[in-house]
Design a protein around this nucleic acid. Structure first.
Lengths: 157, 157
DNA sequence: ATTATAAATGGAAATCATTTCCATTACGTG
DNA sequence: CACGTAATGGAAATGATTTCCATTTATAAT
């Protein structure tokens, strides 16, 4: 039983079982890495991190699991323009705080920010309601990213 | 001289030349397609559309040109999660109207919307200013997308 | 106009993330 | 404990994008 786990095993377990998925060792390992590691991991990053402890978990399984997690809404699949998908745990019941991303187009560094999030979310909710009505579109999620040049890179001119 | 061209050749020309790029036939053809075609074209879409008229322009050149256009900020490179990049002309001096995207996660249809854009942009500008100061990050661009299920797909249940 | 030079090109081959295939294994119900 | 189905791993396939390199072309200088 991992300590400091901000999600609570019960949640994963319930979500999986409820949708007819089985909670295997590999899947737990992947979720565990995602919720304990900082940053925005690619499938390969996760594979590498898991491998020492679970050498039997293959890259294919990592991809498959990330798909499942993503379709369950437990994980967000992100694109920062570097040619590979990146994943991060979604906010669970007691989960991570809502945040958005600043993407440096020079060095590809990602900064998570939570500033102004309340205003953003408030506006987004309003916008979502309006869009849902107008386009008869059921909105489940949103993405906001700002692109630009980070402090280090702008120093380097 | 294309008619109804909402960008004006002068702009492209100036932007290219000013940055030391040469304005070749292939590059013009690509920009032309992008500014006259509806939708969010992939590199291959563009290649196919150009090919009948410019059979000598290769796919490699399409990719290269899109990179240049993208780095000049004349074209946005977008990811809608279907495994290929999509491109659209950025707003030029007299260019296309600012809009964001609704992405259907079932059928991958994209809806452009301009509703609520003014409020969004107002908030974004405020947020950008705050973020720039706090993170010493020079913001050049932003991305907003909503994900969900479109009318047709929710009918199909 | 002519030429020199560096940029741009196309086509084939290479790369690399992701998916597919399929025979084997393991979960969880009965 | 046995069964049926979901899950697995590893190799091979796929498909978008990039790289290579010999050839062509746009542009600035003559």
């Amino acid at each position: 039983m991992p300590k400091g786990n901000c999600h609570g095993q019960g949640w994963w377990h319930g979500k999986f079982r409820g949708c007819g998925y089985r909670l295997t060792a590999g899947r737990e390992a992947i979720l565990d890495i995602l919720s304990h590691e900082e940053g925005h991991l690619s499938a390969d990053d996760i594979y590498i991190k898991i491998h020492p402890k679970y050498p039997s978990v293959g890259l294919t399984t990592v991809y498959r699991t990330l798909d499942v997690l993503s379709s369950l809404g437990m994980v967000y699949k992100l694109d920062f323009g570097d040619g590979r998908s990146r994943y991060e745990v979604a906010e669970g019941p007691k989960g991570a705080h809502h945040h958005h991303h600043l993407v440096c187009t020079r060095c590809n560094r990602i900064i998570d920010y939570t500033d102004f999030i309340d205003d953003e979310v408030e506006l987004l909710n309003r916008t979502e309601k309006g869009l849902e009505k107008k386009y008869k579109f059921k909105i489940t999620n949103h993405l906001i990213q700002f692109y630009g040049v980070c402090e280090e890179c702008s120093g380097k001119a």
